[in-house]
């Protein structure tokens, strides 16, 4: 039985850093996958839609932990070389959360009124410009709240890498537990750290959303003042049904 020493705190701090890196890198990959797959699912070519749809169904149906196992232990045997554990983790998280994100992108883009596409055609804008200058700027603010939910899920998902031996925050906790022989302090601390990171990310996304909406000509959103009860709740509520629904954000 002993205290958490400064050295042990340092292990946890390093773990936080790894967790943040993992979250950031996986989120970047997931965002890229989400946009490519989400837009492909709206492509006018049937074969493109089908391929993207298969990707979505397969990766959404996969358990993130099993995908990680597969990339860590099976893929190396097939390829003959080992993926850097960190990159295998990023790949696993990015590919699966990208699949969820594609549904967000697809839903938000599909929700832009038809008339906006038609006005783009009538002004003779080429297809790429219609997407980039007309459709995406309007779809983007709608994507941010569900993206925030996915980002929190992704942050929580990064803890899985500790099972694979990547020295993230959860892994650091196990080391500290072994060293101190006490579980309650360290696990309470790291749960709090995860919570604080999630809270900070939510605030950040809220700012991003406000900017995006102002940029989309909607003016400042009317929102209740900050109260403890509303730290996460107001966004979640609308999102709960939608994010849970497999079908889409809106139809």
């Amino acid at each position: 039985m002993s205290e958490i020493t400064p050295g042990l705190w340092e292990i946890l701090l390093d773990g936080v850093w790894i967790t943040l890196q993992l979250t950031f890198l996986s989120a970047a990959l997931a965002a890229a996958v989400a946009f490519v797959t989400g837009l492909a699912r709206l492509n006018r070519l049937r074969i493109v839609r089908f391929a993207a749809g298969v990707y979505f169904e397969v990766f959404r149906g996969t358990s993130a932990l099993i995908l990680m196992f597969w990339l860590f232990f099976v893929l190396p045997l097939g390829l003959g070389w080992q993926l850097e554990p960190m990159w295998a983790a990023v790949l696993a998280l990015g590919l699966s959360y990208g699949a969820y994100g594609s549904e967000v992108v697809r839903g938000a883009v599909a929700a832009v009124p038809r008339g906006q596409h038609e006005a783009g055609v009538a002004l003779n804008l080429p297809p790429g410009q219609r997407l980039w200058r007309i459709v995406l700027p309007q779809a983007w603010p709608e994507m941010i709240p569900p993206f925030n939910n996915l980002l929190i899920e992704l942050l929580k998902g990064t803890a899985l890498v500790s099972v694979m031996g990547v020295s993230d925050l959860a892994f650091g906790a196990a080391l500290v537990r072994n060293a101190t022989g006490q579980s309650a302090p360290v696990y309470t601390v790291i749960l709090l750290v995860y919570f604080v990171i999630a809270f900070a990310m939510t605030r950040g996304m809220r700012v991003l959303e406000r900017r995006a909406r102002a940029g989309a000509g909607e003016g400042p959103p009317r929102r209740a003042a900050l109260s403890p009860r509303r730290l996460f709740a107001p966004r979640r509520r609308a999102a709960a049904a939608a994010a849970a629904s497999s079908g889409g954000e809106r139809r």
Binding site: K156, A173, S183, A198
Partner: peptide, 12 residues
């Protein structure tokens, strides 16, 4: 509970 990892909760 919702904003912290299930895995860590299981360890807890």
């Amino acid at each position: 509970i919702r904003n912290t990892p299930l895995l860590v909760q299981l360890f807890f």
